[in-house]
Structure formats: structure tokens, C-alpha cells
């Protein structure tokens, strides 16, 4: 039943609860100084034992990302977001940049070529983003459905 709230089977629930809260703090969904959901609120939402939810919260509190205010609850600590973003940057380097460099080495790509590929890809993405935002602006202006909606109904 915990699966209904999107938790997966293979890892302990308390670490998943902690990960979800940390992600929300990093994304700014939970601002610094804001109250985090209580143990019972988390337990009800994820449909898990309150002790499990409490363990997830405590994991972040032990890390100094949350702080307890007596009688009120747990709050996002000052500096939590920048610390989490720092951790994420490091993970990004480990998970994406390092394997990319290894693969680039295998392919014999020089530094200049690699930077060139990154710039090309960035350029394509920027173009896509600006086209998307223009399309949605246009269709809003004209009050018409997006082109993708029209295509969707026509068998190809």
C-alpha cells in the first residue's frame, strides 16, 4: 500500500521518506524556516508506520538539515538548501560527468571536441525550449489547442 504513494519496494521506507523531503528542500518546495510535515502527516500521506516516518525525519535532523523547535515541530534549517544543492552537484559530477569523461576517453575525444559537443547539445536544447514557450504562448493567444493535440486525433 505504501506503493500507492510512489515508494518503491527495494529500499527501506525511512530513507525514501528522507530522500523525498530532501528533494523538496533542494527544489525550494520547502523553504528554509518552513515547517516540515509532522510524523503523523507523513505517515498518513505515505500510508506507513509513524515510527518509520519519524526515522526519516530524524535522519535529516541528524544531518542538521532540519531543526526541532520544541512543542511546534520540525523546520527546515538555515543553509539546508545550499548544502543539499552542493551535495547534488557532487553527485552530478560522480554520476554523469565522470562516466562521460571515461566514455569520451574511450572514443578518443579531445577536450575541445567534448566541449563542442556539449555546446551543440546546449544550443539544440535552448532552441527547443524557446520554440516550446513560443508555441504555448501563441496557442494561448489564439485560444486554440496545441498542434500536438490536433495531431493526436489523426491516424497516421
Amino acid at each position: 500500500m505504501a506503493e500507492m504513494a510512489g515508494l518503491d519496494e527495494g529500499t527501506p521506507l525511512f530513507t525514501q521518506v528522507a530522500d523525498r523531503l530532501a528533494a523538496e528542500i533542494a527544489d525550494g518546495g520547502l523553504a528554509e524556516g518552513e515547517r516540515v510535515p509532522s510524523t503523523n502527516e507523513l505517515a498518513a500521506f505515505y500510508r506507513i508506520n509513524p515510527a518509520t516516518a519519524a526515522r526519516g525525519i530524524n535522519l535529516l535532523a541528524d544531518d542538521g538539515l532540519l531543526e526541532k523547535r520544541r512543542g511546534i515541530g520540525m523546520f527546515v534549517a538555515a543553509g539546508a538548501r545550499s548544502r543539499l544543492l552542493g551535495q547534488r552537484r557532487q553527485q552530478f559530477a560522480e554520476r554523469y560527468v565522470r562516466p562521460m569523461l571515461t566514455e569520451a576517453g574511450r572514443l578518443g575525444l579531445g577536450r575541445g571536441e567534448l566541449f563542442g559537443l556539449i555546446q551543440d547539445e546546449q544550443g539544440r536544447q535552448d532552441a527547443r525550449d524557446s520554440r516550446d514557450s513560443r508555441d504555448s504562448r501563441d496557442s494561448q493567444d489564439r485560444g486554440e489547442p496545441e498542434p500536438s493535440d490536433l495531431r493526436g486525433g489523426v491516424p497516421v
Binding site: M1, T39, N40, A43, A44, R47, I48, N49, P50
Partner: peptide, 14 residues
Amino acid sequence: RQIFYDRLLAEYGE
């Protein structure tokens, strides 16, 4: 059964 589980957790929490 889901009502039972949800109520059980809420009651236990309170």
C-alpha cells in the same frame, strides 16, 4: 480494507 488501514494509522498517530 484501505479505510481500515488509514483509520488505524490515523488513530494510532493521535
